[in-house]
């Protein structure tokens, strides 16, 4: 049981490492959000599942932590991306299309 918990915690840390690497390698803000904030969701989940195997009496609290992360993580990354698009944060040259570019939706909503 403890062994399985330790292995899961290690896998979680590796996921964190890779998403940190993604933060360095991605060319613009939107792609960095993709790796930097969201790849960490799975990392956190795996790490917490590993911890709950290691300390079974912590499990209920860890489950609540997981729920908290699943509910708040998408909201924060969405708001960062939306704000960035509103102030016309530049997208990388490799971007194929921007469906929002000609829409004045965001401006209208805020004004």
């Amino acid at each position: 049981m403890e062994m399985a918990g330790a292995i899961l915690a290690l896998i979680g840390s590796v996921i964190f490492l890779l998403s940190a690497l993604g933060l360095l390698r991605m060319p613009d803000l939107y792609n960095r959000i993709q790796t930097g904030t969201k790849a960490t969701t799975l990392g956190t989940l795996v790490l917490l599942i590993g911890m709950s195997l290691y300390h079974p009496d912590w499990a209920p609290k860890l489950v609540i932590l997981m729920l908290f992360i699943l509910l708040t993580n998408p909201v924060s990354s969405h708001v960062v991306a939306r704000a960035a698009h509103y102030i016309h944060q530049k997208m990388t040259d490799r971007t194929v299309a921007d469906a929002l570019e000609n829409d004045e939706f965001i401006e209208e909503e805020i004004v």
Partner: peptide, 9 residues
């Protein structure tokens, strides 16, 4: 929440 797709608006 699924990496690779991000709702902007």
């Amino acid at each position: 929440l699924t990496p690779g797709t991000l709702t902007v608006d």
